[in-house]
Amino acid sequence: MKALLIEEAPTYVHVRLNRPEVRNAIDQQMVDELHELCDTLEREPKILILSGCETEKGAIFASGADISQLRERRNIDALRGINSRIFRRIAALPMPVIAALDGFALGGGAELAFAADFRIATPRVRIGNPETGLGILAAAGGTWRLTELVGEPIAKQILLAGRILKAEEALAIHLVTEIHEPENLIEAAIELANKISTQDSLAVQLTKKVMHAPREAHPMVDELAQAILFESPEKYARMDAFLTKNKK
Score class of each variant (00 low, 15 high):
145 R>G: 00
149 L>C: 04
120 I>D: 00
79 L>F: 15
162 G>I: 11
133 G>L: 11
87 F>I: 01
159 L>V: 10
133 G>E: 10
158 I>Y: 05
81 G>K: 12
115 A>F: 06
94 P>S: 12
138 A>Q: 03
113 A>I: 04
95 M>E: 09
104 F>K: 01
95 M>F: 07
95 M>R: 09
124 R>H: 10
80 R>Q: 13
163 R>E: 08
119 R>G: 01
134 L>R: 07
116 A>S: 13
104 F>I: 02
142 G>K: 02
75 N>R: 15
161 A>K: 15
122 T>D: 09
129 N>M: 09
81 G>S: 14
128 G>V: 03
134 L>N: 06
146 L>H: 03
78 A>W: 15
71 R>K: 15
151 G>A: 09
81 G>L: 14
106 L>V: 11
71 R>E: 13
138 A>C: 04
103 G>I: 00
119 R>M: 07
142 G>R: 02
93 L>R: 06
105 A>K: 01
107 G>W: 00
130 P>H: 08
128 G>Y: 00
164 I>E: 13
161 A>Y: 14
128 G>M: 04
90 I>L: 11
132 T>Y: 13
105 A>I: 04
111 E>G: 00
158 I>K: 05
114 F>I: 01
108 G>M: 07
137 L>R: 12
160 L>Q: 12
149 L>W: 03
143 T>W: 04
